[in-house]
Simulated assay, not measured.
Amino acid sequence: MVEHSSLHDQEQQTKKLKRLLEGWRVALLPLKSVILWEQQWHPCAIVGALSVFYLLIWLMDLNTLASFAIMGLILNFIDFIVPVICNSLYGPSSWTGQQEKMFEEICKDIVAHYNKVIYKIRSFYALRETSPFMYYIISISMLCTMAWIASSINNIFLLYILSTVMFLWPGIQHRGIFNTLLSMVNMAPKMPYIKSD
């Protein structure tokens, strides 16, 4: 029964997301191929676009709040202009059933990943009641580490690294690079313990 309601909730979330992304549907299909690295030059395009974006922010030399405001303005402009361009270039008659199916798969993937992240966050906060000692150790150590890193490294550079990893991660997973690296680490020769006499 829980799985059925969960599937029903995911279907409802997918329908809502499809309505929300209706203007973006033409742009999402090529964007998916770039994010999943279907061509060899796609990772370079992602890193290059993010590098130019953060280089412009760095050259403007704004404070943190103004940087977030500029990022918000750019994202709002993109959110406004992409549906207008897509609707003017591609009419509703050029949208095929296969493209609709791919669009629905993209929406289902987004909903599934969103729900997975929310589940992990809720599981972490559930530690507060089941194992408060572990919860506070993890929370305090993570926050101290983040504060130390943020005080040592430029915040714009940290955002650049974070967003680059975030945009490259789907392609890394799709290509199986992370699993390959993990298997290489597991196959590495183990160092024998040195016994003292």
Rank of each mutant, 00 (worst) to 15 (best):
P132Y: 10
Q173I: 00
L29C: 08
G48A: 13
I85Q: 11
C86G: 14
K190P: 01
H4M: 12
L50W: 07
I35T: 04
R25D: 00
T180Y: 08
A150W: 05
A188I: 02
L55H: 01
L29I: 12
H8V: 02
E38F: 01
L31F: 13
E22K: 06
S51L: 12
W95Q: 01
W37T: 05
F77H: 07
I57G: 03
I118G: 01
S51N: 08
S163C: 09
I35G: 00
L65M: 12
L56H: 00
S94F: 04
S131T: 07
E11N: 04
L89I: 10
I121A: 13
S94V: 07
I118T: 04
E38W: 02
E104F: 01
N87R: 12
L36D: 03
V185R: 09
A112Q: 11
G176Y: 03
G176F: 03
G91C: 08
L143E: 14
S196W: 06
I78L: 15
V26K: 05
Q10F: 01
C44P: 00
M134H: 08
Y119C: 10
L127M: 15
S67W: 02
A45Q: 07
T64A: 14
A45R: 05
L75M: 11
I149D: 10
I156W: 09
W24P: 00
C44K: 08
I194P: 00
L31M: 13
S67D: 07
M166Y: 10
I74H: 02
M166Q: 08
G72V: 01
N76A: 15
K190R: 12
D9Q: 08
T96G: 06
V52W: 09
H4V: 09
A150F: 06
E11M: 04
K116T: 08
I46K: 03
A69L: 13
E3Q: 11
K16F: 12
Y114P: 00
N179Q: 12
S141T: 11
T145Q: 06
Y114T: 06
R128M: 15
T130I: 11
A49F: 11
L62C: 07
R25Y: 00
L182H: 00
L127V: 04
L56K: 01
V185M: 14
M187A: 15
T130R: 13
W24M: 15
Q173P: 01
S6V: 05
R19K: 12
L17V: 03
D197M: 10
I85M: 14
A45H: 02
L143N: 12
L127E: 10
M1I: 07
M166I: 06
C44Q: 10
G91S: 14
Y54S: 10
R19F: 07
L62G: 02
I177P: 01
I121R: 05
Y125K: 05
S33D: 15
D109E: 13
L168S: 03
Q99T: 02
L20E: 09
R19W: 06
L181Y: 04
I149W: 10
L29H: 03
V84K: 15
L162T: 04
M166S: 12
T164N: 11
D197W: 04
F80V: 09
A147V: 07
R25N: 02
E22M: 05
S94N: 10
L31G: 15
F157Q: 12
E129N: 07
T64C: 02
A49L: 14
K32T: 01
S139Y: 09
Q39R: 14
L17T: 02
S139V: 02
I78N: 06
H42E: 13
F133H: 11
M184E: 14
